[in-house]
Design a protein around this nucleic acid. Structure first.
Lengths: 328, 328
DNA sequence: TTGAAAGCGCTAACAT
DNA sequence: ATGTTAGCGCTTTCAA
């Protein structure tokens, strides 16, 4: 059994209040007392119980972060950026992966009971669930999902860069483009789609949409099959993420389609494989997303902020040969 | 202010003990009382304080997982496998990334004070630090590091598959191979190196070693530069991980070296980019590693296990054209 | 500078 | 089936 504050107090011949003071504010205790307490603590191998502390202080000293999944390169980076800042600020980090489970709401509610505040990423729970938490007074920051009234939010720019992507495709000689993705899967996708459509209209690019069930390589392969059954391929295919684009390119090539000669393909995310596949894509400040959320949350918990904040971090179009006219 | 068990008790006209019972074991309370308590709890929007519970039960209901980093595809998958099982078992998950920081030891000690047990991945802290925790009675499971006396351990097989890799290279026509990596970076690497060396000797393959500073694409590029300055390239280069191999291949090609005609290259991990680069590599059961660790830890915490366990999960050689003789 | 004592919100004997 | 009460290990007034 680990020793408690009482053991140390007895052994040092002081009261527990003095031990407490010696541990948290050594300067307000006489040097001699401090010495004795320290000696006793060392001797007994005493570490203050977090549980005792937390209950007395009525704070957890921990934050939660909720995400759909951690496979794939995306959320891992965001979580790292978050963890880095949070642990710098001396707070523990609790994680929760929802995996699209319907029980997500209860899971998050439970999590909320274990920490001082929550960061919620992407497509994990409904806005109502968040609002309920917010009403209960749980400090909340969302990342990569549309702002919820009164809740802090951090996101990566989608619309403008998707607009720029449309322009780039037109400049590369495309006359038509199809957007490949599933807007139901994530709010980000909806914005990318809207940006691409807006850009396409602006530059006179004929634009349409093809929905996929899953936004992974499998989904890309399915889309390739579908597209190849049409009378003609579009000039360009803008995919909602890289995995989709990679799966698509692979499947197209298996069917003898040459990218980018026969069709331009683009992704979104700039995962590592995108470089090796020479895929034009969009890079997001993933770590920054997490780090910013961590700071926002800390401000909320410390009560340093009243007005809800909405921050949109810039993204960057990365042009590679999968959409480059020079190589066609 | 959130309502407490006393508020509910008063409002329902019962004692706090009854409220406690109604919340945790409804069956031992009369239906009428249960109804009244539930009504009061609903009315007051009562959720039992985790902090109060935890202190009274003297358990955190949470486990920690410690890893070097979450960028790259490796640890993220392990953490997901872990989180999945742990949350299934009703335990919260605390994460800690050490980033090779020297303060890792204190960070882990702090973390240990917040949970009922710890999973420690790879190159994060010294064995002594772990032994100290184990002595303090903290349930512990290590993953992907050499077993520490008395501590449960889960790892992926390295030696045998590295041995098989050497055989494969010899079968592909190689007469010499260099192992590229940095054994100081991770215990896994040491084992892969040993396995490769043993296999190479067995099949009469000339084997040597080249150390890199960093085991990422940058490290691979540096190695390429070094190798190209030698009078001749080896027949094969076995890299300690995929990132190294990918960086190496890219840099070699920039220098006009043709893979696999001029030199065979292999990696380790089977990251997504490896498929697109046609890289021969070794696949590890990452999620399983995490899931197994979670179960081991739960057994320890529940006191279901006395003898320390060591589990080694099998890995699989994935042959692609970067080392295939048929394409040479 | 130090100590006594009253919580923090809950669980779990023990008693009824 | 329910209530009383004594903790769990700490922090923090309030006095001395």
């Amino acid at each position: 059994m680990a020793s408690t504050i009482r053991d140390v107090a007895r052994s040092a011949g002081v009261s527990i209040a003095t031990v407490s003071r010696a541990m948290r504010e050594p300067s307000i205790v006489s040097v001699e007392t401090l010495r004795r307490v320290r000696a006793a603590a060392d001797e007994l191998d005493y570490t203050p119980s977090q549980l005792g502390r937390q209950l007395a202080e009525r704070r957890h000293g921990a934050n939660g972060i909720v995400f759909p999944d951690l496979s794939g390169p995306y959320y891992g980076e965001v979580v790292v950026g978050y963890e880095d800042v949070a642990s710098e600020l001396g707070r523990a980090v609790l994680i929760l992966a929802t995996h699209g489970r319907p029980a997500a709401r209860e899971m998050i509610t439970r999590l909320a009971g274990r920490c001082d505040g929550l960061v919620v990423l992407g497509h994990t729970v409904s806005d109502e669930a968040l609002l309920e938490l917010a009403e209960r007074g749980v400090p909340l920051v969302t990342v990569a999902r549309p702002p919820v009234a009164g809740v802090d939010s951090v996101a990566a720019e989608n619309h403008r860069t998707a607009f720029a992507l449309a322009t780039h495709l037109a400049d590369s000689g495309a006359r038509s483009v199809v957007f490949l993705g599933n807007p139901d899967r994530s709010p980000d996708v909806t914005e990318r789609r809207a940006g691409l459509f807006a850009g396409a209209r602006e530059v006179g690019l004929e634009v349409s949409e093809l929905r996929v069930e899953t936004m992974d390589e499998q989904g890309g392969a399915v889309a390739a099959e579908h597209l190849c059954q049409q009378p003609a391929l579009p000039d360009a295919i803008a995919c909602a993420n890289d995995e989709l684009a990679l799966g698509l390119m692979t499947a197209l090539r298996e069917r003898g389609v040459v990218v980018p000669r026969d069709v331009l393909v683009t992704g979104w995310d700039d995962v590592m494989a995108a470089r090796y596949a020479e895929l034009t894509t969009v890079r997001q400040p993933l770590r920054d997303l997490g780090a910013t959320a961590a700071r926002f949350l800390d401000d909320l918990i410390a009560g340093r902020r009243a007005e809800p904040r909405i921050e949109v971090l810039p993204t960057e179009l990365i042009v590679r040969s999968s959409s480059s006219p020079r190589e066609r």
